[in-house]
Amino acid sequence: MSVIAVYNIKGGVGKTATAVNLSYLAAADGEKTLLCDMDPQGSSSYYFRIRSDKKFNAEKLLKGGKHIDRSIRGTDFPNLDLLPADFSYRNMDIALDDMKKSRQRIRRIIKPLRSEYKRVFLDCPPNITLLSENIFHAADCILVPLIPTTLSLLALRQLYGFLDEIGEKRSKVLVFFSMVEKRKKMHWDMMRELIKEKECLPALIPFLADIEKMGLFRRPVNAMLPNSVAAGAYADLWRELKKRLERQ
């Protein structure tokens, strides 16, 4: 079983698209999969047309156990469940701060899910907070989509600094390139630079209109357009990631 946090300090790098499509692919492989939408915006939940229960909120999430059990929803796809986000998640840090063992909370609430699910994906909000720290402790793998730009490199260094600070291994981090525009020379140059600094997964996700269309169809691109270039790119990425997870 593995917990995969899809994370980047920066927003708009394709985190949600990654979490949605990879969790769909894992489930399609026959692996019982749970996608936890941790972002108060609830984009993953939106893509799967799932609303959170009226009684569910950040506090209930942090209590865990039956509160989570009751809030998990089946998606339209076999083997894939989703824990929808709630807008109250925006105050997660405050809620966490009031708790004992506030750094290990997410790890503790995910633990019982390990017996039911083979893969748990966490779609994380873009920032470095107490919640992020919680997520880094809980995850077996931190999957970082990276747009090949200078700022992304900076964000990656910030992430490493933070991991050192909280005593987590840098080896948990797996990087891949996202929203790559193959026409842009700068993207190619940056990718060459980045590869020198950190090993990246060989599969990359190009910048494609089909991925943006997910918001229109409200379905994973691999379910909507299984033969598209975008679907192929995610399938490659999942294959690579799965290999790494099995090695861990």
């Binding site: 799932i50 229960d53 009751r70 809030s71 998990i72 929803r73 089946g74 339209d76 469940d81």
Partner: peptide, 12 residues
Amino acid sequence: LRTVSLHGVRGY
């Protein structure tokens, strides 16, 4: 034999 089966989705 003709059958009809109803399959629930979790949470609904």
